[in-house]
C-alpha cells in the first residue's frame, strides 16, 4: 500500500504535548487531511486529559489507538478501564505505528 497524501499521522510518545496533538489534529482536519493518531509509552497518560474524548471522536475508530501494553505498564487496567472515546478494538500494539508509516503521506512525532 502506498502512503495516502490525504492521511496525516501523529505519533505521540511523551506526555507533555496534548495542546500540540489537538492543535495539529484540528488543523489537519481543517486542511482536508484525515488525522491518524497513536499514543504510546508515557503518552498514554494523555487519555486521561479531558480533551482526549473529543479527539477520539473526531478521528473515528479506525484512526486513533493507544498501545495497550504501555497502558498496562503504567498501571491502568486495559480491560476494565478503556479510555473515554475508545473501544477495546483501539487498544493496540506497535503495529498501529507501522500502519501509520505505511498509510499516511504526512507524519509528525510529538
Amino acid at each position: 500500500m502506498s502512503a495516502d497524501p490525504n492521511k496525516f499521522a501523529i505519533f505521540v510518545n511523551s506526555a507533555q504535548n496534548m495542546r500540540h496533538v489537538v492543535g495539529i489534529a484540528n488543523a489537519a482536519e481543517k486542511a482536508g487531511k484525515k488525522p491518524m493518531v497513536f499514543f504510546t509509552y508515557k503518552a498514554i497518560h494523555l487519555t486521561k486529559d479531558p480533551r482526549f474524548k473529543a479527539l477520539a471522536e473526531m478521528c473515528g475508530e479506525e484512526n486513533i489507538a493507544i498501545c495497550a501494553d504501555s497502558y498496562t505498564c503504567e498501571g491502568y487496567d486495559s480491560v476494565a478501564d478503556i479510555p473515554a472515546g475508545l473501544s477495546v478494538k483501539q487498544m493496540r500494539t506497535q503495529a498501529f505505528h507501522g500502519a501509520q508509516l505505511e498509510e499516511c503521506g504526512n507524519y509528525i512525532v510529538l
Binding site: 500540540h20 492543535g23 488543523a27 489537519a28
Partner: peptide, 24 residues
C-alpha cells in the same frame, strides 16, 4: 518552532504537507 505560546498549527500543517520529510 512549537515552543512558543501560541503556535500557528495551520501554518505548521501546511509546511508538513509541503515537505517530503519532517523531523520533529
Amino acid at each position: 518552532y512549537l515552543n512558543v505560546e501560541n503556535p500557528d498549527y495551520d501554518l505548521l500543517v501546511s509546511k508538513i504537507i509541503a515537505a517530503d520529510k519532517t523531523v520533529c
